[in-house]
Design a protein around this nucleic acid. Structure first.
Lengths: 325, 325
DNA sequence: ATGAAAGCGCTAACAA
DNA sequence: TTGTTAGCGCTTTCAT
């Protein structure tokens, strides 16, 4: 592989002139520029990015920490990140962690090792205190509420959001309400559960453990929910489901079993994914794409020093009324 | 940020010894090793990966070229790639191209610029001849038939596969068969169309343009298909749909319109995604996960010189009989 | 077992 | 406008 030195030699100039040409700097005479360009073509030259990165101390790479690449929620989020990265000519290093703390640590380490200029956290299991020290090495933006930590974040108020879902159901006469969440112990789940309990308390309904479904992450998880529902003596008349995929699974299996939606069972989904539209599913749009692009922008602004302090940006959400309630 | 030199100084050894310790080389006395380790902890040192990459000439990064990050097909494929990469300690640079030739070219350029050690192509629009020259800079593995080019590939025989789908439908009495494909001009689509035409010719049925749907990529694309189907005077009794998502969209919209599946319309999907299971959809499993992991392994073997010649590996497929035919 | 030193290829400050 | 040169931080060969 030819290097800048050989180009310089052939073009009859110094390496700095070559560098200037490559980087489109001013103050290069037209004939030298041409000579360099010709040499570049002649030798089929390309810069060695590792050398560039080492020399500059930056990489134009953003790391994306997600538990799973193949999950509608993160796919949509990454799409938002990617669209913004594409415009700014940044590359994405997608790191699948499977919620493994060791894997998550490795991603943080890569920031320290200057492999990437910043990190966007889609979701994680590590505590904020374990992540915080790494902000020294570059911006870290979380796509969830980072609480009082010094980590930037784009998030929405899941308590509020869940409360609104509950309110909507209650206003339509439901009192027996259940929910489907993902990880039982995640911060978001905890908030949602609190919202759920508060909402029930407000209408003097007791909380029932058996109406709370956890580990509902994918479309197929909806099936088990329906079967459990069928086995119950007392059944919830409505379900707040924090994933359109799971909601779609529930609806499909429900219909197969002759359960009428929403008459027998009302369902509210989350995310407003395309599948929600197809199912005519009432859902809460939590702006995943926008969250992704906002996260990238935030990281970008920090890298380019447009900002220095951590930011916390709350996004809105929108209840989309369709036919499953 | 501390560097190897400072560590050496504090530990009272040379930089080479530090390097040996970091890289777990043999021939380092126990006390020096300990001294180095202590210095590393003391200064909170981490290697600068850009320097490592420059020095070594490799990066342990594989580029993944996909038109879209947020698409079930590529998500599943990337999951396969990722699972293998995780085991081998490789990082994934996911590059979304939107089938833009310029973006695709940039990914290839990054290989030349030594930003990545190899590339896995999920799908592309560039011609093989335009890609082939870049194999000089590192292994390129395509997740589709790369024809006679010198590019490695993992693929399945889409002609055969489509033929089998047709055969299955025909055996069950269908003669009026349509299909839903993605990009009209892709190599795969062309093969499938040929298979379709050959299958019809074999039963002396004419080919009808209006029964061939293109640009069917996402779940929501299924709706339009159903509406067009409804408007037809003569309708196909069966549809071969190269995406479970689209098939699910079709089924959902069909049921909503009182169309019975499979009595009025039989549907075969593709990919055997989780959604196919939920919909009890007859589908053809084309082993996307395995394709992804095989692609990574292939790239890996070339990088580590276990192989040098381009490989072409054909994967099997499996028709999964469920209830939509 | 250890160290000196020559790269790896580029950027950018400085001098001219 | 151009060139010289000192880094960037690490690996690895070659001596010892």
């Amino acid at each position: 592989m030819p290097n800048i030195k050989q180009i310089a030699k052939i073009a009859g100039v110094s390496v700095s002139t070559v560098s200037r040409v490559i980087n489109h700097h001013a103050y290069v005479s037209e004939d030298k520029r041409r000579a360099v360009m010709e040499a570049i073509v002649q030798l089929n030259y390309s810069r060695n990015l590792n050398a560039v990165h080492l020399s500059k101390g930056t990489t134009n790479i953003i790391g994306v920490m997600v538990p799973s690449i193949n999950h509608a929620y993160f796919s949509r989020l990454m799409e938002g990140i990617s669209s913004e990265a594409l415009m700014k000519d940044y590359q994405l290093m997608v790191c699948q962690t499977n919620y493994n703390p060791v894997s998550e640590g490795k991603v943080l380490d890569m920031l320290k090792m200057k492999q990437m200029d910043g990190i966007i956290i889609g979701s994680k299991t590590l505590a904020w205190e374990q992540i915080e020290p790494f902000t020294e090495y570059g911006p870290i933006v979380a796509c969830e509420d980072a609480g009082t930590s010094a980590i930037s974040s784009v998030y929405l108020d899941h308590y509020d959001c869940f409360r609104q879902g509950m309110r909507y159901l209650i206003e339509r006469g439901h009192r027996q309400i259940g929910f489907c969440l993902g990880r039982a112990d995640s911060a978001n789940s905890l908030k949602r559960r609190r919202a759920y309990e508060d909402a029930l308390a407000a209408i003097h309904e007791a909380v029932r453990e058996e109406w709370m479904f956890y580990q509902c992450l994918r479309i197929e998880d909806g099936l088990a929910v329906v079967h459990q529902w069928l086995r119950m003596r007392e059944r919830p008349t409505a379900l707040l489901v924090t994933s359109d995929q799971v909601a779609a699974g529930i609806i499909t299996e429900a219909r197969k079993n002759g359960i009428r939606i929403p008459e027998d069972l009302a369902v509210i989904g989350f995310d407003n994914q395309p599948i929600a539209q197809v199912f005519d599913l009432t859902t809460i749009d939590n702006q995943l794409f926008e969250m992704g692009s906002a996260a990238f922008q935030m990281a970008y602004d920090h890298i380019t020093k447009k900002r220095t302090k951590p930011e916390n940006r709350e996004l809105g959400y929108l209840l989309i009324e369709r036919s499953t309630v």
